[in-house]
Simulated scan of single mutants.
Amino acid sequence: MNCGGTWHWTGSWTPGDGGWVTVEFGVLVDVREEGAGYSGERVEEVVAADRLGFEGAWLSEHHLTADGVLPSPLVMAGVLAGRTSRIRIGTNVLVLPLHHPLRVAEDVAVLDLVSGGRFVLGVGQGYAEREFAAFGADRRRRGVLLEEGVRRIREAWSAGDVTPRPRGEIPIYAAGVTAAGLRRAARVGDGVIIYCATPADLIARRTLLDEVVDDPPPLICTGIMHVDDDADRAWAEAAPGIAYLEGEIASYGGTEPPRLHRTDYLVGTPEDIAARLIDLHAATRFVHFAHWLRLPTLSHEAAVRSLELIARRVVPAVRAGVSR
């Protein structure tokens, strides 16, 4: 159910004329101290994504991590807005139960204005116990706090409680993983965000979404992807970062990290990955796919090289394949 915002990804939606006619691509911006995350390299990588035609740059939020994962995505969004001209900038996701909804409404209104309407608010209920404890938030009520927060943000914008006023409607997307979480995301969001590291898990979540929601809003898939002309080199570059990332994500949720199997991930040559993305689109019907721009431990040069190959050889092939 659409709850008041609009789907803004440029040029993809043609109401009454066949629906979604193409897919869009974005990048997950991994900002942490490991890998010079707070240096100019990370900003330059997003500038490169903007130049190469990617449609979205997404920022996540975590707190009190050993490696300094970004705790202030709205601050970083302002930095990126000032260095880019066309790419949309969003959160994937802002842990809304840790924030006062009016404060978020004000900050996002400012971002909307300074970015020329390019900001997208992606929210989630969060899960890490240490984060809720640190902020004194009730983790048991995180689902309710998410719904209440989205409602209060929209009311603040529509009723004029926020000044300056946003230039227009700002879309709010919501993330979910479980059946209950996906129902909630579809209920409050203009789009549903699903993060899974592998295509198989994305497909499983899409299946679950279809089972629990009759008419889901558009799906934004986010996951891991890395390409190189040499498939072995692609895996050698990506594997350490994937192992690190899977371990960190597991630690947030108090679970064991999975064993890595090369064929599980979108890592390989551009042609192989394009074919797999076409299959993934057929199975999930995603409207936007965002990949980890720079995996932990990956060099700036390797990240930009992969980004350029994706832009020039993966994205056109996927768009041609899904439009047939």
Rank of each mutant, 00 (worst) to 15 (best):
V75K: 07
A174Q: 05
R118V: 11
S60Q: 13
D161W: 15
E147Q: 11
T6V: 14
A274C: 09
E131G: 03
A48C: 10
E55K: 15
L209R: 03
H300A: 14
C221Q: 03
G82E: 10
A137C: 10
L202I: 00
G247Q: 05
I87F: 14
R285L: 04
V144G: 13
G4W: 15
D107E: 15
I170W: 14
P171A: 08
D272F: 04
P258T: 00
L121D: 12
R187M: 11
R183N: 04
L182M: 09
R139Y: 01
S12R: 11
F286Q: 07
R140Y: 13
A134Q: 09
A250T: 07
R276W: 06
R319P: 00
G247P: 05
C3D: 13
A185V: 02
A159I: 00
R130L: 00
M76I: 15
R83G: 01
G4C: 07
A66Y: 12
E246F: 14
A134V: 08
P216A: 10
P71C: 11
W235R: 10
G68Y: 01
G11H: 13
G78P: 01
P216K: 14
G321V: 02
R167K: 10
L245F: 15
T198A: 08
A303Q: 09
V213G: 10
T297S: 09
S115E: 03
T84L: 08
L98I: 12
T163H: 15
G11S: 11
G160Y: 02
C221N: 11
I242N: 07
V192R: 11
L266V: 00
L309R: 14
I203A: 15
R206G: 13
P73V: 05
T284C: 04
A137H: 11
R285A: 13
M1N: 12
R313P: 04
A311R: 10
I194K: 09
D107Q: 14
V110G: 10
A185C: 11
L293M: 12
P218R: 12
D107I: 09
A180C: 02
D228V: 01
A231I: 00
I194H: 09
E237S: 09
I220K: 10
Y195H: 14
V75T: 13
I224A: 05
V123S: 04
V212C: 07
A105N: 13
L59V: 13
D215I: 00
L219T: 04
A156K: 07
